[in-house]
Design a protein around this nucleic acid. Structure first.
Lengths: 114, 114
DNA sequence: CTGTATCCTGTTAGATACTG
DNA sequence: CAGTATCTAACAGGATACAG
């Protein structure tokens, strides 16, 4: 679903899904909503995602202007990720997804379940 | 993203995305929101989806109780699809996806753009 | 009319080892 | 610390032909 061609689709839903519709992106966005995080902190909060995939997803989200990547030329290097306004505006949608799931599939966990 | 294992994920967002996150499902749900439709009518309104994929997606949505499939034993056969309450409850989320896209990526088309 | 069956391709994401 | 590089498996989606 993250294929770039879908971002050119005529349907706004399809275009949004092209940005949001991969396994980890909603979780990454939600995790970054609470505070700016460094790469390692993000990885620590999502132990099930491999570092390669996390890197890939972060790069795509940056290209879509969902998040901001700030690299500091220090040793050891430090990179901070944070949501842009465009990314912050996705949070109500993610919130509704949580609520829909809890309403129709029982209260298995909270949105913080990661 | 439609893998069944994701539906067992602890995160409610991931579980919702496992149901909603494929190329055509949002469009199918939106198309069915206006009225009950037969298989051929659905296919006609979404000329870009192949019949095999449409069948697959409808089957999955039925298994997830998003839509209702009613088959009439006539000749020629007739099958009608409609949204369940659970499926109808997804519409506000899809609506928000449309609005988010239009707000941040310009007004390329309406939700009806299919 | 409403699908199945079969085959095929590109993409996603995971494992593992390595780098500035 | 924050990634790259490489390889691989699984999956989603599409083309085409056929069936009840």
């Amino acid at each position: 679903m993250t294929n770039d061609t879908f971002k050119l689709d005529k349907c706004p839903m399809t275009r949004t899904m092209a940005i949001l519709g991969s396994k980890w992106k909603p979780v990454i966005i939600y995790t970054l909503s609470k505070r700016h995080l460094r790469f390692g902190q993000l990885a620590a909060q999502m132990p099930l995602i491999s570092r390669k995939v996390l890197t890939d997803q972060l790069k795509e989200l940056e290209e879509d202007n969902i998040l901001l990547r700030e690299a500091y030329n220090e040793l050891p290097p430090r990179v901070e990720y944070s949501l842009t306004a465009k990314g912050l505006a996705l949070l109500p949608i993610l919130q509704q997804m949580c609520e829909w799931n809890k309403q129709f599939e029982g209260h298995v966990g909270a949105c913080e379940a990661r």
